[in-house]
């Protein structure tokens, strides 16, 4: 009996290894006819169901961009909403093909979890929100302030680091969940509230008077968010990585979902390469050469995705800041397609 159990465990484990390590995620995806994306179960601007229940958000659109590149159809996507606890397990077990769920790229995650980031689609960082009445213009003016923060997060540690390195006094109120922290701040228990800036923007909406609050300009931590895949499948990693770069390159070259058909007639050699009229860049990824055309027609370029989901005209009202192209003073930089 014991031998049998041991054999069964070994068999199960080897099956598991085979499925996790089997190269050719792209072939699997093509066979299934859809990309399975680990998605956010509900973060405003990044992954949230709209009124009709369709998933919307920056991360969601990245997933659709991958589907558009492979199938020329951004709807061939299956979203598996994942909590922050089980997201990496789901990716490692092959339950999802790619995880795009505002996950921060850190060294320990990449060295211990068997995952690898394909890029940074949103540069986030911890910031502060204060009431306008305080008339505070910078986080460095927060000396002596009471600050609400969620318990047991890196946010709490970053906060301590920031105030210590700036030699400022502060009082901290830690709350169990982010909802409680928001409520405590809204009810006036704290002068300031701190979390990632993308979260601050969304949390401001749930204040009883959203317009009374401002987000301070300082960013006190690095939270690079991006899509990640399993280690060991370089073809798939390349594909996800270059979908991200294609979105940036399209913005850089001014190719939008509206003008892509005109741009196809362009004589500019760069645009000809990007749109597949010259060279075989798509084929080398295992896609068709019109892959960028498919992406841009499907979801637009990076700018369009950003503006649609989190930009100044949405309730979240984020500016590009670090997420602007490198040529416009931001950090988003794509290697050349050539």
């Amino acid at each position: 009996m014991k031998k049998f159990i041991a054999a069964a465990v070994v068999a199960a484990a080897s099956f598991g290894l085979v499925s996790a390590a089997s190269a050719g995620t792209l072939d699997n995806v093509k066979a299934k006819g859809q990309v399975v994306c680990g998605a956010n179960p509900g973060t405003a601007g990044f992954g949230v169901p709209d009124q009709k229940g369709n998933w919307t958000g920056l991360d969601v659109d990245y997933c659709r961009a991958i589907a558009a590149a492979i199938f020329n159809d951004p709807t061939k996507v299956k979203f598996v909403p994942l909590s922050s606890k089980d997201r990496f397990t789901a990716l490692a077990s092959g339950e999802v093909d790619v995880l795009i769920r505002n996950s921060t790229w850190t060294m320990s995650r990449e060295t211990t979890l068997g995952v690898i980031w394909a890029g940074i689609n949103f540069y986030d960082g911890q910031g502060f929100m204060v009431n306008k009445k305080l008339n505070v213009k910078s986080a460095k003016e927060l000396a002596g302030a009471t600050i609400c923060v969620q318990q047991g997060t890196t946010t709490e540690l970053n906060l301590a680091d920031f105030f210590r390195s700036n030699k400022l006094e502060y009082k901290v109120v830690t709350l169990g969940t982010s909802e409680e922290a928001v409520k405590a701040y809204d009810s006036g228990r704290c002068d300031a509230y701190t979390t990632d800036r993308s979260g601050l923007a969304a949390d401001r909406l749930s204040m009883s008077k959203p317009d009374d609050h401002v987000i301070l300009p300082e960013i006190i931590s690095k939270e690079p968010l991006g899509p990640l895949v399993r280690q060991g499948d370089d073809q798939w990693l390349n594909l996800v990585k270059w979908v991200h770069y294609a979105l940036l390159t399209a913005e850089e070259d001014g190719i939008t979902s509206k003008n892509v058909d005109e741009k196809l007639k362009s004589d500019d050699p760069e645009i000809k390469r990007v749109l597949g009229n010259e060279g075989k860049f798509g084929e080398s990824l295992g896609l068709s050469n019109a892959w960028v055309v498919q992406i841009v027609k499907g979801v637009g370029n990076y700018e369009e995705i950003f503006e649609r989901n989190v930009g100044p005209n949405t309730p979240i009202q984020l500016t590009r800041a670090s997420n602007a192209l490198w040529s416009k003073g931001g950090l988003q930089y794509a290697p050349p397609i050539r």
Partner: peptide
């Protein structure tokens, strides 16, 4: 869960 998820929709998010 669908109700909770909808509460995160920025278009509908208020106190």
């Amino acid at each position: 869960k669908v109700i909770e998820a909808s509460l995160n929709d920025p278009v509908w998010r208020t106190s």
